[in-house]
């Protein structure tokens, strides 16, 4: 009997198939990270019982709830746009769960008041959801979900409904609340920053499958798919290592390593480690590729240059360097990366 969440979720809809194994220990926060349409929300709805499984199982603290209806699962859920009941006050929204569990009105309201206090909204107990700000509404939704004393807390894109200015504050606040919980938590997000800040562990889902799992730092350091690599800002390739050289699969290029490796590996280097030259540079660095400019875009205070050729890659350079290079679509360039900047890990 294992505590926390142990699930394998299979949902087959013909053109789309989700098949993902998920685990979360009590007190652990797992982020489901993935692009739109990857099946994250389907997975979350399946955990809540709002979506039927075609296969697999859902066990919570050892109890099988695979076929239990949503109202019989010890699960609390915070929806993307919170879905607070407009006809009830903030207090009664939070008291809704305890009332359903059989608590008397006074008892449920007292419990709700304690939770609102905990999320710092005691003063808003009588407010209607409409009168709350996005961040306040999110905290009421969190309190409402926690009021059912869930063994599993689900958060669907908890920050997506907020504007950019409030997001950082709410994120930090949410992190503080999640850290206090003793139940397993699964949150869904497409924002790597949310996942990195809020989660103890990240599960990356693409096209219905788990493609990578690990601690946030590990995922950021060692991406295993192009999607993750783009999210964490790395150029990523898969290939076969022969000593200090890696033959990149599907490309007519090689990448030089700082130290010898063998077998199937990933190689990754950040875009800012790439130097660009119009003329072939002297001294001949060990990683040098002749590429073609595909496009140029602003990226913070840098400029991101997309390059195509034997080894398609992204390079971040300064605006001054861009002006000097006079890059245009189709302009041929030399791209150089020091071997010491290249990270290599087994595939």
């Amino acid at each position: 009997m294992s505590a926390g969440l142990d699930a394998r979720l299979v949902v087959d809809r013909g053109e789309f198939r989700l098949d993902a194994a998920l685990r979360a220990r009590p007190g652990e926060v797992v982020a489901l990270l993935g692009p739109n349409g990857a099946g994250k929300s389907t997975a979350l709805r399946a955990l809540a019982g709002l979506e039927s499984l075609t296969g697999g199982h859902v066990r919570l603290d050892g109890r099988d709830v695979t076929t239990a209806p949503p109202e019989r699962r010890p699960v609390g859920m915070v929806f993307q746009d919170y879905l607070l009941f407009d006809h009830l006050s903030a207090l009664d929204n939070v008291a809704f769960g305890p009332r359903c569990a059989g608590a008397g009105r006074a008892e449920a309201r007292a419990a709700a008041a304690r939770l609102l206090e905990r999320v710092g909204l005691a003063a808003f107990a009588r407010a209607r959801p409409r009168a709350l700000s996005g961040g306040q509404a999110q905290r009421v939704a969190l309190a409402r979900a926690l009021a059912v004393r869930p063994r599993l807390l689900l958060l669907d894109e908890p920050l997506a409904a907020l504007d950019v200015h409030t997001r950082a504050g709410v994120r930090a606040e949410l992190r503080r609340h999640l850290a206090d919980l003793d139940c397993a938590t699964v949150l869904v997000t497409h924002d790597p920053l949310d996942a990195m800040v809020l989660a103890d562990r990240i599960t990356v889902v693409e096209a219905g499958r788990v493609v990578q799992e690990g601690a946030p730092g590990d995922v950021a350091q060692h991406p295993r798919t192009g999607y993750v690599a783009r999210l964490v800002g790395l150029n990523l390739y898969r290939g076969t290592a022969h000593g200090t050289r890696v033959e990149v699969a599907g490309a007519g290029a090689e990448v030089a390593l700082p130290e010898p490796r063998a077998g199937e590996v990933f190689v990754a280097f950040p875009p800012r480690a790439v130097a660009l030259y119009r003329e072939r540079p002297d001294g001949s660095p060990r990683n040098l590729w002749r590429l073609r400019t595909e496009g140029v875009e602003r990226f913070g205070d840098q400029v991101r240059v997309h390059l195509d050729g034997p080894l398609p890659l992204r390079a971040d350079i300064t605006p001054a360097a861009l002006a000097e290079l006079r890059l245009d679509t189709g302009t041929p360039v030399w791209a150089a990366v020091k071997a010491a900047e290249v990270r290599c890990y087994p595939a």
């Binding site: 109202e71 879905l83 059912v148």
Partner: peptide, 8 residues
């Protein structure tokens, strides 16, 4: 659905 997840 939200109400159902709250045990209703």
């Amino acid at each position: 659905e939200a109400a159902a997840t709250l045990g209703a």
